[in-house]
Simulated assay, not measured.
Amino acid sequence: MTSNLAADSLTLYGETFASRVLLGTSRYPSLQSLSDSIAAAKPGMVTVALRRQMNADTAEAGFFDLLKRHGVPLLPNTAGCQSVAEAVTTAQMAREVFETDWIKLELIGDDYTLQPDPIGLVEAAAKLVKDGFKVLPYCTEDLVIGRRLLDAGCEALMPWGAPIGTGKGVVNPYGLRVLRERLPDVPLIVDAGLGVPSHACQVMEWGFDGVLLNTAVSQATHPPVMARAFAQAAEAGRSAYLAGPMAERDSAQASTPVVGMPFWHHAGGSA
Protein backbone atom coordinates (compact mmCIF):
# COMPACT_ATOMS: atom_id res chain seq x y z
CA MET A 1 0.00 0.00 0.00
CA THR A 2 2.81 2.40 0.87
CA SER A 3 4.48 1.81 -2.50
CA ASN A 4 1.15 2.37 -4.29
CA LEU A 5 0.69 5.72 -2.60
CA ALA A 6 4.25 6.77 -3.34
CA ALA A 7 3.85 5.91 -7.03
CA ASP A 8 0.41 7.52 -7.33
CA SER A 9 0.41 10.75 -9.29
CA LEU A 10 -1.83 12.81 -11.54
CA THR A 11 -1.07 12.25 -15.22
CA LEU A 12 -2.65 14.35 -17.98
CA TYR A 13 -1.73 14.10 -21.65
CA GLY A 14 1.28 12.02 -20.68
CA GLU A 15 2.63 14.60 -18.22
CA THR A 16 2.86 13.97 -14.48
CA PHE A 17 1.99 16.59 -11.86
CA ALA A 18 3.10 16.85 -8.27
CA SER A 19 -0.38 17.42 -6.83
CA ARG A 20 -3.98 16.52 -7.59
CA VAL A 21 -5.11 20.01 -6.56
CA LEU A 22 -5.35 22.73 -9.20
CA LEU A 23 -5.72 26.29 -7.95
CA GLY A 24 -7.31 29.34 -9.51
CA THR A 25 -5.71 32.77 -9.16
CA SER A 26 -8.61 35.24 -9.27
CA ARG A 27 -10.45 37.25 -6.59
CA TYR A 28 -7.84 36.97 -3.85
CA PRO A 29 -7.76 39.92 -1.44
CA SER A 30 -4.11 40.61 -2.31
CA LEU A 31 -1.14 39.25 -4.22
CA GLN A 32 0.43 38.22 -0.93
CA SER A 33 -2.66 36.19 -0.07
CA LEU A 34 -2.47 34.48 -3.46
CA SER A 35 1.22 33.76 -3.03
CA ASP A 36 0.69 32.31 0.45
CA SER A 37 -2.19 30.17 -0.83
CA ILE A 38 -0.08 28.72 -3.62
CA ALA A 39 2.67 27.95 -1.12
CA ALA A 40 0.17 26.30 1.22
CA ALA A 41 -1.65 24.18 -1.37
CA LYS A 42 1.39 23.28 -3.49
CA PRO A 43 -0.92 22.79 -6.52
CA GLY A 44 -0.07 20.78 -9.59
CA MET A 45 -1.15 23.69 -11.81
CA VAL A 46 -2.52 27.21 -11.38
CA THR A 47 -5.15 28.60 -13.71
CA VAL A 48 -4.98 32.07 -15.22
CA ALA A 49 -7.67 33.89 -17.19
CA LEU A 50 -6.19 35.82 -20.10
CA ARG A 51 -9.17 38.16 -20.48
CA ARG A 52 -9.22 39.09 -16.81
CA GLN A 53 -5.49 39.46 -16.35
CA MET A 54 -5.13 41.61 -19.46
CA ASN A 55 -7.82 44.00 -18.18
CA ALA A 56 -6.05 47.15 -17.00
CA ASP A 57 -8.71 47.79 -14.36
CA THR A 58 -8.12 44.51 -12.53
CA ALA A 59 -4.51 43.56 -13.29
CA GLU A 60 -1.96 44.04 -10.53
CA ALA A 61 1.68 44.73 -11.15
CA GLY A 62 3.76 41.74 -10.24
CA PHE A 63 1.09 39.10 -10.86
CA PHE A 64 3.03 37.20 -13.51
CA ASP A 65 6.29 37.63 -11.63
CA LEU A 66 4.63 36.02 -8.63
CA LEU A 67 3.55 33.00 -10.65
CA LYS A 68 7.03 32.64 -12.13
CA ARG A 69 8.61 32.70 -8.67
CA HIS A 70 6.46 29.79 -7.55
CA GLY A 71 7.37 27.80 -10.65
CA VAL A 72 3.97 26.06 -10.83
CA PRO A 73 2.82 25.03 -14.33
CA LEU A 74 0.27 27.44 -15.80
CA LEU A 75 -3.14 26.44 -17.11
CA PRO A 76 -4.63 29.37 -19.06
CA ASN A 77 -8.40 29.38 -19.40
CA THR A 78 -11.00 30.91 -21.68
CA ALA A 79 -13.20 32.28 -18.90
CA GLY A 80 -15.90 34.66 -20.09
CA CYS A 81 -16.13 33.30 -23.63
CA GLN A 82 -19.62 32.75 -25.05
CA SER A 83 -18.95 31.62 -28.63
CA VAL A 84 -16.76 29.06 -30.32
CA ALA A 85 -14.84 31.71 -32.24
CA GLU A 86 -14.25 33.73 -29.07
CA ALA A 87 -13.00 30.70 -27.13
CA VAL A 88 -10.68 29.56 -29.92
CA THR A 89 -9.22 33.05 -30.40
CA THR A 90 -8.71 33.50 -26.66
CA ALA A 91 -6.95 30.13 -26.42
CA GLN A 92 -4.64 31.05 -29.28
CA MET A 93 -3.81 34.38 -27.63
CA ALA A 94 -3.19 32.62 -24.31
CA ARG A 95 -0.75 30.24 -25.99
CA GLU A 96 1.28 33.22 -27.22
CA VAL A 97 1.19 35.08 -23.91
CA PHE A 98 1.85 32.16 -21.57
CA GLU A 99 3.93 30.03 -23.95
CA THR A 100 2.00 26.82 -23.30
CA ASP A 101 -0.26 24.48 -25.26
CA TRP A 102 -2.36 23.75 -22.17
CA ILE A 103 -5.82 25.30 -22.08
CA LYS A 104 -8.80 24.98 -19.78
CA LEU A 105 -11.66 25.38 -22.21
CA GLU A 106 -14.63 27.33 -20.86
CA LEU A 107 -17.56 28.19 -23.11
CA ILE A 108 -20.53 29.51 -21.17
CA GLY A 109 -24.03 28.95 -22.52
CA ASP A 110 -26.14 30.55 -19.78
CA ASP A 111 -25.38 33.81 -17.99
CA TYR A 112 -27.34 32.91 -14.85
CA THR A 113 -26.03 29.43 -14.05
CA LEU A 114 -22.77 29.83 -16.02
CA GLN A 115 -23.49 26.36 -17.37
CA PRO A 116 -21.21 25.29 -20.23
CA ASP A 117 -22.61 25.32 -23.76
CA PRO A 118 -22.37 21.58 -24.56
CA ILE A 119 -22.70 21.88 -28.33
CA GLY A 120 -20.27 24.74 -28.73
CA LEU A 121 -17.87 23.13 -26.26
CA VAL A 122 -17.46 20.02 -28.41
CA GLU A 123 -16.94 22.12 -31.54
CA ALA A 124 -14.36 24.37 -29.87
CA ALA A 125 -12.55 21.40 -28.33
CA ALA A 126 -12.23 19.70 -31.72
CA LYS A 127 -10.75 22.86 -33.26
CA LEU A 128 -8.26 23.36 -30.45
CA VAL A 129 -7.14 19.72 -30.34
CA LYS A 130 -6.54 19.87 -34.10
CA ASP A 131 -4.48 23.03 -33.49
CA GLY A 132 -2.21 21.18 -31.06
CA PHE A 133 -3.72 22.22 -27.72
CA LYS A 134 -3.92 20.01 -24.65
CA VAL A 135 -7.55 20.72 -23.86
CA LEU A 136 -9.13 20.36 -20.43
CA PRO A 137 -12.82 21.11 -21.07
CA TYR A 138 -15.01 22.50 -18.31
CA CYS A 139 -18.29 20.59 -18.70
CA THR A 140 -21.29 19.28 -16.79
CA GLU A 141 -21.57 15.71 -15.52
CA ASP A 142 -23.46 14.67 -18.69
CA LEU A 143 -22.03 11.33 -19.81
CA VAL A 144 -22.96 11.72 -23.49
CA ILE A 145 -21.33 15.15 -23.74
CA GLY A 146 -18.29 13.73 -21.99
CA ARG A 147 -18.00 11.03 -24.62
CA ARG A 148 -18.37 13.56 -27.43
CA LEU A 149 -15.52 15.59 -25.95
CA LEU A 150 -13.36 12.48 -25.81
CA ASP A 151 -14.27 11.72 -29.43
CA ALA A 152 -13.15 15.26 -30.28
CA GLY A 153 -9.69 14.41 -28.96
CA CYS A 154 -9.78 15.53 -25.33
CA GLU A 155 -7.85 13.18 -23.03
CA ALA A 156 -9.38 14.44 -19.77
CA LEU A 157 -12.59 16.12 -18.58
CA MET A 158 -13.36 18.73 -15.93
CA PRO A 159 -16.99 18.19 -14.87
CA TRP A 160 -18.58 20.63 -12.45
CA GLY A 161 -19.76 19.71 -8.98
CA ALA A 162 -22.15 22.68 -8.92
CA PRO A 163 -22.41 26.03 -10.73
CA ILE A 164 -19.28 28.20 -10.53
CA GLY A 165 -18.83 30.06 -7.26
CA THR A 166 -21.81 28.55 -5.41
CA GLY A 167 -19.87 26.45 -2.90
CA LYS A 168 -22.74 23.96 -2.76
CA GLY A 169 -20.63 20.86 -3.23
CA VAL A 170 -21.84 18.10 -5.52
CA VAL A 171 -25.49 18.74 -6.43
CA ASN A 172 -25.87 15.63 -8.58
CA PRO A 173 -23.93 12.82 -6.88
CA TYR A 174 -25.59 10.17 -9.02
CA GLY A 175 -24.63 11.81 -12.30
CA LEU A 176 -21.07 12.49 -11.24
CA ARG A 177 -20.55 8.94 -9.94
CA VAL A 178 -22.03 7.44 -13.12
CA LEU A 179 -19.56 9.53 -15.13
CA ARG A 180 -16.72 8.13 -13.03
CA GLU A 181 -17.97 4.55 -13.35
CA ARG A 182 -18.59 4.69 -17.11
CA LEU A 183 -15.28 6.41 -17.93
CA PRO A 184 -12.93 4.47 -15.62
CA ASP A 185 -9.74 5.19 -17.58
CA VAL A 186 -10.32 8.89 -18.28
CA PRO A 187 -8.77 11.50 -15.96
CA LEU A 188 -11.64 13.42 -14.37
CA ILE A 189 -11.07 16.60 -12.36
CA VAL A 190 -14.02 18.10 -10.49
CA ASP A 191 -14.11 21.79 -11.29
CA ALA A 192 -16.47 24.40 -9.81
CA GLY A 193 -18.96 24.39 -6.98
CA LEU A 194 -16.86 22.88 -4.20
CA GLY A 195 -17.09 25.00 -1.06
CA VAL A 196 -15.36 23.23 1.83
CA PRO A 197 -12.59 20.62 2.10
CA SER A 198 -15.04 17.80 2.85
CA HIS A 199 -16.50 18.28 -0.65
CA ALA A 200 -13.06 17.68 -2.16
CA CYS A 201 -12.45 14.68 0.06
CA GLN A 202 -15.78 13.17 -1.00
CA VAL A 203 -15.16 13.28 -4.75
CA MET A 204 -11.62 12.00 -4.30
CA GLU A 205 -13.03 9.06 -2.30
CA TRP A 206 -15.27 8.32 -5.31
CA GLY A 207 -12.19 7.94 -7.49
CA PHE A 208 -11.96 11.30 -9.19
CA ASP A 209 -8.45 12.25 -10.20
CA GLY A 210 -8.28 15.80 -8.91
CA VAL A 211 -10.09 18.99 -7.96
CA LEU A 212 -9.84 22.56 -9.18
CA LEU A 213 -10.54 25.32 -6.68
CA ASN A 214 -10.76 29.07 -6.81
CA THR A 215 -13.61 30.85 -5.04
CA ALA A 216 -13.65 28.38 -2.13
CA VAL A 217 -10.09 29.44 -1.35
CA SER A 218 -9.90 33.06 -2.51
CA GLN A 219 -13.12 34.07 -0.72
CA ALA A 220 -12.35 32.28 2.54
CA THR A 221 -11.60 34.44 5.57
CA HIS A 222 -8.04 33.07 5.56
CA PRO A 223 -7.26 31.85 2.02
CA PRO A 224 -3.86 30.24 2.75
CA VAL A 225 -5.29 28.22 5.62
CA MET A 226 -8.19 27.07 3.46
CA ALA A 227 -5.81 26.22 0.61
CA ARG A 228 -3.84 23.92 2.88
CA ALA A 229 -7.05 22.36 4.24
CA PHE A 230 -8.22 21.54 0.70
CA ALA A 231 -4.85 20.01 -0.16
CA GLN A 232 -5.00 17.81 2.93
CA ALA A 233 -8.60 16.81 2.19
CA ALA A 234 -7.81 15.87 -1.40
CA GLU A 235 -4.86 13.78 -0.26
CA ALA A 236 -6.97 12.05 2.40
CA GLY A 237 -9.74 11.28 -0.09
CA ARG A 238 -7.30 9.86 -2.61
CA SER A 239 -5.66 7.69 0.04
CA ALA A 240 -9.07 6.41 1.14
CA TYR A 241 -9.97 5.54 -2.46
CA LEU A 242 -6.72 3.62 -2.94
CA ALA A 243 -7.19 1.88 0.41
CA GLY A 244 -10.52 0.43 -0.73
CA PRO A 245 -13.40 1.54 1.53
CA MET A 246 -15.60 -1.07 3.19
CA ALA A 247 -18.90 -1.93 1.54
CA GLU A 248 -21.89 0.02 2.85
CA ARG A 249 -24.50 -2.12 4.67
CA ASP A 250 -28.17 -1.58 5.51
CA SER A 251 -27.98 -3.34 8.87
CA ALA A 252 -25.62 -3.23 11.82
CA GLN A 253 -22.84 -5.77 12.08
CA ALA A 254 -20.79 -6.18 15.23
CA SER A 255 -17.14 -5.33 14.90
CA THR A 256 -16.22 -7.70 17.74
CA PRO A 257 -16.64 -11.51 17.55
CA VAL A 258 -19.46 -13.34 19.31
CA VAL A 259 -17.19 -16.22 20.35
CA GLY A 260 -16.26 -15.92 24.00
CA MET A 261 -19.20 -13.69 24.99
CA PRO A 262 -21.29 -14.72 28.02
CA PHE A 263 -24.09 -17.12 27.00
CA TRP A 264 -26.82 -14.71 28.15
CA HIS A 265 -25.73 -12.21 25.44
CA HIS A 266 -26.52 -14.71 22.69
CA ALA A 267 -29.91 -14.56 20.95
CA GLY A 268 -32.53 -16.40 22.96
CA GLY A 269 -30.39 -16.54 26.11
CA SER A 270 -31.55 -15.34 29.53
CA ALA A 271 -29.68 -14.47 32.68
Rank of each mutant, 00 (worst) to 15 (best):
D101C: 02
A126N: 10
D111C: 13
V97K: 08
L75F: 02
T89K: 01
P116L: 05
A124K: 15
D111V: 05
Q82S: 00
V88E: 06
C139I: 13
E96M: 04
D57R: 13
R52P: 05
C81V: 11
A49D: 08
T100A: 10
M45L: 14
G24L: 06
K68I: 07
A91Q: 03
E106V: 09
A79L: 00
P29E: 01
S26Y: 06
T25I: 00
S30L: 05
D117G: 07
T25S: 08
L66E: 04
D57S: 09
E99R: 07
P118R: 00
Y112K: 03
A40E: 06
S26I: 12
D36R: 01
P73D: 12
T90V: 15
F64G: 14
L136A: 04
G62R: 06
T90E: 15
E123W: 02
V135Q: 08
E86V: 01
G109R: 07
V122P: 11
L114Q: 10
T78H: 09
S30N: 08
Q32F: 04
A94H: 01
Y28A: 01
T89H: 00
A126I: 09
T58F: 12
A49C: 06
F63E: 05
L31G: 07
E123K: 05
L128S: 08
E99I: 03
G132C: 13
S30G: 14
N77G: 13
Y112S: 05
I108L: 09
T113H: 06
T113Y: 02
G109S: 01
S26F: 13
G71F: 09
E96F: 00
L23G: 02
H70E: 03
N77E: 04
P116T: 14
P116Y: 03
G24Q: 13
L22T: 14
K127W: 01
R69S: 02
N77K: 00
A85Q: 14
L31W: 07
A59K: 07
N77D: 15
L107M: 10
E86W: 13
S30H: 08
K68V: 06
